[in-house]
Structure formats: C-alpha cells, structure tokens
C-alpha cells in the first residue's frame, strides 16, 4: 500500500520536473521583448480601456507615450486620468506635461417631464437609438432627449443617471471623465464635452431644436426659439438655424448669469455659482 502511494508520488513529481524544465527553456526561447517603460506607464494609467484618448485601450496609449518625442507627447492626453496622470507620465519620461482644463459632458436639452410632457406612450424596447428611428419621441420634439437612457447604460463610469423628477439624464461632473461614450451613443447628438470651468461655472444652451420658434415651443416650454437676445448680450454667441450656440471661449463668469437670466424660455443654463454658495 505504502509503496503504491510512493510510486505514484514519484511518477507525478518526475512529470512535474520534466514539464518545468521544458517550460523553462521554451519560455526563454520564445520570450517577447517588452519595453519595461511601456509597462510602467501602463501601470500609471486608469486601465479603463475606454478609448477616449483615441488609442485602442490603455496599453496602446502607453506604447504611444513611450515612443513619443517631446513634441508628440504634447498631443497625447488621457482624459480619464486627467492632469494628475499625465504629469506623472511626463515626469517619468522627462517631458513637460501640457496644461489642460478639465472637461465634462453636458446635455443640450432641457426637455424635462415638466417642460415637455409626454404626448404619447411608447410601447416597446426602451432604447433611444431604436425609438428615434421609428418615431419622433414621446415629447414630439424631433431633436430633443428621448429620456430612455441609452447614455446611462453605456457610460463606463456610471457618471450618468436618469433624474426621476425631470426624466432627463444627469451627468455627475465628479465622476465624468469626458471619455465621450455618451456623445457617440446619443442618436440625437445631445451631449458635448465642454470645459468644466473654474468652480464648475459653466454656461450653455440646453436645447438642440432647430425648428422655428412657434413650432419648437409647441412641444417644449424650454426650447430655444432663436430670438437672438443672447447674441445681443454677448456678440460671440451665434444663432444659426433658429438655435443659439454659446462657444466655450466666452467667459462664463462674465456673461453667464446675464445670459441665463435674459433667456425668455430658460434654454440657457448657468451652473456653478449657486453650488459654490451652498
């Protein structure tokens, strides 16, 4: 009995030793030369593999960083890791990190359940991308939010959730990494990556409707009617196709409050100051 056990143990150990030797030499022979720098940089990256930087994942981005010259490096930026990660990588490589403002996604629609009540009931798969193909949406606005949450389900960082009161997706700027998944998924193209602004002071037009004023207002109380009032306050604000657009270059601190207060429909949203006081 004991000899049988011993025999088995012996045989198995011998197989193990032979396999180990074979594996050792094969590993030596077929070893892939890795740049240790790439691994080091990859370890610094957030490993979200979201593709927001334009590369195919974090490993690819690390390879690009490692191969980059000082000039090339200035063009590389990881929006998820942000300034912190980039300066860390720059330090390791001996380059200077580029100063970049933090950004986040904003929704260009204010068609809340109150402003744009449902006119019909949609029965079927709750997907904005499908619904926008088959009909105009519950609210009747051909450019507005469908409030079915494709962006919520596709945000890799859980930064968007549907607000129960307004029905609209709400971006949490602290969690948002500007990866752009929402921009790509939204069938109406309602999301835009905009600079966060100092203390979160931002001003933007929360509407995407290009219909004429009267028609737009039929479906939504908060629609931009292209009245041009905003462009009178600040000439940099452009109104095209019955829709106002506030460029990111204008100072939100200077004009923001005034723009939002003077918009007759409340399509211009000004954020930041209030939160700061709270």
């Amino acid at each position: 009995m004991t000899s049988l056990i011993l025999f088995n143990v012996l045989i198995l150990s011998m197989i193990a030793v032979i396999a180990a030797i074979v594996l050792y030499f094969t590993a030596k022979k077929f070893q892939v030369e890795n740049n240790p720098l790439v691994d080091e940089i990859a370890a610094m990256l957030p490993q979200a593999n979201c593709g927001a930087c334009g590369s195919a994942g974090c490993q690819n981005f690390a390879e690009k960083c490692a191969a980059a010259t000082a000039d090339d490096f200035a063009g590389l930026y990881c929006p998820v890791g942000g300034q912190k990660v980039m300066s860390k990588i720059a330090e390791r490589l001996g380059y200077k990190a580029q100063e970049k403002e933090r950004t986040c996604a904003v929704l260009h629609c204010n068609g809340t359940c109150q402003n744009a009540p449902d006119k019909v009931q949609y029965i079927g798969l709750k997907s904005c991308r499908l619904a926008s193909r088959v009909f105009v949406g519950n609210t009747g606005c051909p450019n507005g939010c469908l409030r079915m949450g494709d962006c919520v389900r596709n945000c890799p960082f859980g930064a968007i959730e549907l607000n129960k009161v307004t029905g609209l997706p709400q971006v949490n700027p602290d969690k948002c990494t500007s990866c752009g998944a929402c921009v790509r998924i939204c069938p109406r193209g309602l999301f835009e990556i905009r600079p966060m602004g100092k203390n979160g002071v931002r001003v933007y037009v929360a509407c995407n409707n290009t219909q004429k004023g009267a028609q737009a207002r039929k479906n939504c109380k908060a629609a931009c009617i292209g009245c041009m009032k905003c462009s009178k306050i600040c000439p940099d604000v452009k109104v095209e196709n019955n829709l106002s657009h506030i460029p990111t270059t204008i100072s939100a601190e200077e004009f923001g409050e005034q723009l939002a207060a003077n918009c007759p429909t409340g399509a211009i949203i000004f954020t930041g100051k209030k939160n700061e006081q709270n």
């Binding site: 079927g124 798969l125 997907s127 991308r129 499908l130 193909r133």
Partner: peptide, 11 residues
C-alpha cells in the same frame, strides 16, 4: 420585444 432588438442590431 424580440423584434425591437433585431431592428436595433440591424440599425
């Protein structure tokens, strides 16, 4: 809504 899923995939 199986058809809706198929339609979405096609789109």
């Amino acid at each position: 809504p199986l058809l809706d899923y198929c339609k979405l995939a096609k789109y």
